[in-house]
Write a protein that binds this DNA or RNA. Structure first.
Length: 978
RNA sequence: GCCGCGAUGGCGGAACUGGUAGACGCGCGGGACUCAAAAUCCCGUGAUGGCAACAUUGUGAGGGUUCAAGUCCCUCUCGCGGCACCA
């Protein structure tokens, strides 16, 4: 029994004192950057799983150093996040303190394992000198137009009081606490990762990841090719009278109104366009009088106003006796300053510029405002329809010639004749589309629903919105839905098909609407059966009365596609759609934009300031200037999450209130913080230059070290963390801050260490094993070796303390080896040694540590058999063992008189002639069954072997009569076929 | 439901490109040393039959290809992981 405690501490101190593992920037040696996922320093201390990954890469790092590489093997702390914050709240302490304590524990525990980290490069995501650069990089996203704020239905965890990204909702429940998740509308910072979807997919071809990891990335991005198809809602406008109020712009008069009239008259409407008098200096009373004299309003009236025409309408409409059918205001001039900068006293006098949308909406069955979503003057909470960026084109660009550009007009027209855009991967089945379905959240639902169906549809939509994702996605998959009363036209054959609302269609994918082809889609088939909708077969090969058929076949009932194979038919149909303006080829991704806001305290503050009077183009958001970074997290006593879902930071008024960096006026800080994923998306860059305060890392150093040669981590991070960090790196690459577009040249993953009962180690089950105890009782080398020996690195393995004792016995045998040192050794020992060096070296490169350990055990067994080996052989073995059990290897080497560290020795070279056997055991089979074994030279000629085999009594017994064939595989076996 | 991976002694696991299945370790049985124990060392250890040599059988189940299958092909069962009405 050797004394592991003193040996462990002695060598750990020496390594650290002499900086043996410090990586050198710009060395002449070839670089090797190996990376483990840095730990989250939780309060429960190091988990048994951590040493597995860290030791594995430590072995590789140590071997690479001995092979002459300049190795970077760094460590740090991913320390922002909920568990610490929750623990701090519970114990009434500050997250800063708790974090520091946890890190100290983790550091001590990791150091007790003798991992060859370069501790001089330690990073900590919660350190202001680190998150300064996280914030800086966020601003790079912002400047690139990749960060935007959007109101959206988010997943809200009721118990954590936190918004969760889709990725953090597992089976409809919160990933962290397992609690209930509901939908809530919240303004969130989003990052447009979807813009990088294709590159994130394509560049997987350039990296070496485990196939299953690549596949998970691909599946998550979820690319599918297909077509976008437009279905026009069949709208009958006969009996309606459209009243256009024209003011102010001549080009509208010449182009817009005639075009609109033609479109609407084709649908049976009559159109009246009134030229309002004196539009640029209007007298509103005069205009109203003119309208009243020229036109009689009734309930079939549809009012369309354009720009300044809205002013008169706004005053007039609330005074009418009868309500009108519909009012559409296109870009009403809701904010005079934004109009064109010109003062218009006449307008100002007649109107206070605060449109009373409420009064108008009472006079119209439907009321639509088409205006800029971001215009603060447009009341967002009012039930008006908001379109994007319309005002910019239609009003402000007054001086520009010809606003009639074909981009905005369809939006206007679609208010009266809506069209439904769908995404399909099967355009070849368009002739089989017998109905359509909108997601309950689809904005067109309320537009197209007919009056007699409105109540029913509204009730259905309301019920759907209450359902959680579990109810919608899980369970019976029984189809529910409601008919809107509206019909759309199938562009392929002109057929009228009913439009339904059903929750089996998701707003989040594609366009939120589908064409349903029940004959060839399982879900559509089930829905059609449930609601008795027609099923039309358009691909032959199945029996669509019994079930949907999604296989190969030839098109039928499909006019010009008939007789074509699926792939061919898809192409033809896309060509047809494009030619006739009904759609086009498109690609869709499952990947969603990244919800980047958290309403919690313990995270990086988002470094933006909101000013009411500056930067309207970004919604008033202004980056904190670089020289004011980092925006430090204020240390406060109260940081509990709020019930209303606002960030705790919003309550700290003297932090929130600040100055606008642009105009120096009063402004407010953004109070949301960043998600945990932020700091971990780029930490590998900081390791390269951890103390730089001019940049997150020096470009020259990045060029030297990047990319990472091997990155190892858990399978649980192979989707999100890997994707986010690849994306983050690509954005930095595009902005010229990093030299490579893919950060990880090779990615591997380790299996979990399970508890002795084969389940996950967990606090609640009390089945955890404490690394401290194991190190204390058995030593660091035992723990390291056991975790390598326990099974294949990438597969989960149950902990077994008894099994670990076997590796300790092995190390005890190692400690006794010096007693056997002698001036000569048996040939078998020499051969075993060289074989061991060869196999261990190869196994390390292939990350097959378990068989490397087994080989070293075999070697010891051979030595023990002969009880003698030379000092040189023992040293050579110590060099081979050192990556696995560095403490004892160094100790034994030192006791043999070696100076310096084993880590500074050269990795041993094996002698090729020593790894081949002089004599091998050859299997002799008869009819494939083993009958004897022969000791022969590996390259013995067939004749000789055959003679020896036939001479064998047992073989001869079975080889009676004619031998049909003799198969001889040199060095392996001989088979007699009789 | 779909996709991926896996299933080998009492246990964790080996087995290159189809060529002696069970390396290595744990456990178990026997023995040596010891007054005794611990530690250490030696022998044995898939199952069945046999004193033994050896024979039969054996890698989740069933079928196939091959001189030869844990390994390749088909069908199925179970387990693990991922996705989950993704149009």
């Amino acid at each position: 029994m050797y004394n592991h405690s003193s040996i462990d501490k002695k060598w750990q101190k020496r390594w650290e004192d002499e900086g043996v593992f410090h990586a050198e920037d710009f060395s002449d040696k070839e670089k090797f950057y190996c990376l483990i996922e840095f730990p989250y320093p939780s309060g429960s201390g190091l988990h048994m799983g951590h040493p597995r990954s860290y030791t594995a890469l430590d072995i590789l790092a140590r071997k690479k150093r001995m092979e002459g590489f300049n190795v970077l093997y760094p460590i740090g702390w991913d320390a922002f996040g909920l568990p610490t914050e929750n623990y701090a709240i519970k114990t009434g302490r500050k997250p800063q303190e708790v974090t520091k304590e946890n890190i100290d524990t983790f550091r001590r525990q990791l150091q007790s394992l003798g991992i060859s980290f370069d501790w001089s490069r330690e990073v900590n995501t919660t350190d202001p000198s680190y998150y300064k650069w996280t914030q800086w990089q966020f601003l790079e996203f912002f400047k690139e137009g990749l960060a935007y704020k959007d109101k959206m239905a988010i997943n809200w965890c009721v118990s954590c009081k936190i918004g969760l990204s889709n990725e953090e909702v597992v089976g409809g429940a919160c990933e962290r606490c397992g609690g209930e998740v509901e939908k809530r509308d919240k303004e969130q910072w989003m990052i447009a990762i979807t813009k990088y979807a294709q590159r994130l997919l394509d560049d997987l071809d350039t990296v070496d990841y485990l196939p299953k990891i690549k596949k998970q990335q691909q599946d998550w991005i979820g690319r599918s090719e297909g077509a976008e198809v437009d279905f026009t809602v069949d709208t009958d406008l006969s009996g309606y009278n459209i009243l256009g109020l024209h003011a102010f712009r001549d080009d509208s008069k010449e182009a817009f109104w005639p075009w609109l009239s033609a479109e609407l008259e084709g649908r049976g409407a009559s159109v009246t366009v009134l030229d309002l008098p004196n539009p640029s200096e209007p007298n509103i009373e005069e205009q109203i009088k003119f309208i009243k004299e020229s036109y009689t309003f009734n309930e079939k009236t549809i009012v369309i106003t354009h720009s300044l025409g809205g002013v008169a309408a706004m005053k007039l409409l609330p005074t009418l006796d009868t309500p009108v059918s519909h009012v559409i205001m296109v870009a009403p001039p809701v904010n005079v300053e934004l109009l064109d900068g010109k003062e218009r006293p006449a307008l100002r006098d007649c109107c206070d510029w605060k449109f009373d949308f409420g009064a108008i909406s009472k006079m119209a069955k439907r009321f639509t405002v088409l205006a800029d979503k971001n215009d603060p003057a447009v009341p967002q909470d009012h039930p008006v329809q908001i379109a994007n960026n319309l005002r910019g084109e239609l009003v402000v660009a007054e001086a520009e010639v010809g606003h009639f550009n074909g981009k905005e007009e369809p939006v206007i027209l679609s208010q009266l004749i809506p069209s439904i855009e769908v995404f399909t991967t099967r355009p070849d089945t368009l002739f089989g589309a017998t109905y359509m379905v909108l997601a309950p959240e689809h904005p067109l639902v309320s537009t197209i629903v007919t009056d007699d169906k409105r109540a029913e549809v509204e009730a259905y939509v309301k019920a759907a919105s209450k359902k959680s994702d579990i109810d919608r996605g899980d369970g019976t998959k029984e189809k529910t839905g409601a008919f809107t009363g509206a019909y759309a036209v199938n562009p392929a054959n002109g057929a009228q098909i009913p439009v339904w609302v059903a929750d089996y269609v998701m707003m989040g994918y594609g366009t939120g609407a589908i064409m349903a082809v029940p004959a060839h889609d399982e879900r559509d088939w089930a829905f059609a059966k449930a609601f008795d909708l027609p099923i039309v077969e358009v691909v032959s090969g199945g029996s669509v009365d019994a079930e949907a058929y999604a296989g190969e076949g030839l098109s039928v009932n499909s006019d010009f596609l008939d007789g074509k194979k699926v792939d061919e038919a898809k192409e033809e149909m896309i060509a047809w759609l494009e030619k006739n303006g009904h759609g086009k080829k498109t690609v869709n991704y499952k990947l969603r934009d990244w919800v980047f806001s958290r309403q919690r305290y313990w995270g990086e503050p988002i470094p933006l300031i909101h000013c009411d009077s500056c930067s309207p183009e970004t919604g008033g958001w202004i980056p904190v200037p670089e020289d004011q970074l980092p925006v430090e997290l204020p240390e406060v006593d109260q940081y509990q999450p709020t019930d209303d879902g606002e960030s705790p930071l919003s309550a700290i008024t003297d932090w929130v209130n600040t100055e606008c960096p642009t105009c120096n006026g009063p402004a407010k800080r953004e109070t949301d913080t960043m998600p945990n994923w932020a700091g971990s998306s780029w930490y590998f860059l900081r390791y390269i230059d951890p103390h730089n305060d001019e940049a997150f890392a020096d470009m020259k150093k990045l060029e030297y070290w990047m990319p990472i040669d091997l990155y190892n981590g858990g399978m649980e991070h192979t989707v999100l963390h890997l994707l986010y960090s690849r994306f983050w790196n690509k954005v930095m690459f595009d902005r010229g801050h990093v030299p490579v577009s893919e950060p990880y040249a090779r990615r591997h993953s380790h299996g979990l260490i399970l508890a002795e009962d084969g389940t996950k180690m967990s606090k609640s089950k009390g089945n955890g094993i404490d690394p401290d105890e194991v190190v204390d009782k058995y030593g660091a080398d035992t723990l390291r070796m056991y975790e390598m020996f326990v099974g294949p690195f990438e597969e989960p393995a149950p902990w077994n303390t008894k099994g670990m004792i076997g590796t300790r016995r092995f190390l005890d045998k190692v400690a006794r080896l010096p007693d056997m040192v002698s001036i000569s050794e048996d040939k078998e020992v020499t051969k075993a040694l060289h074989k061991t060096v060869k196999k261990v070296g190869e196994d390390i490169e292939n990350l097959r540590f378990n068989t490397a350990v087994a080989q070293m055990m075999t070697f010891i067994n051979v030595v023990n058999k002969h009880k003698a080996l030379t000092k040189e052989s023992l040293l050579m073995f110590m060099y081979t063992l050192c990556p696995f059990a560095p403490h004892i290897a160094n100790e034994v080497a030192e006791n043999l008189g070696a100076t310096g560290f084993v880590e500074q020795q050269k990795w041993p070279a094996y002698d090729e002639s020593q790894v081949v056997d002089d004599v091998i055991t050859l299997a002799v089979q008869v009819n494939g069954k083993l009958r004897a074994t022969l000791e022969v030279a590996p390259d013995a000629p067939q004749q000789e072997v055959e003679a020896a085999a036939r001479a064998n009594e047992n073989v001869a017994k079975f080889v009676e009569g004619e031998v049909k064939k003799v198969i001889y595989v040199k060095g392996r076996m001989m088979n007699f076929v009789v």
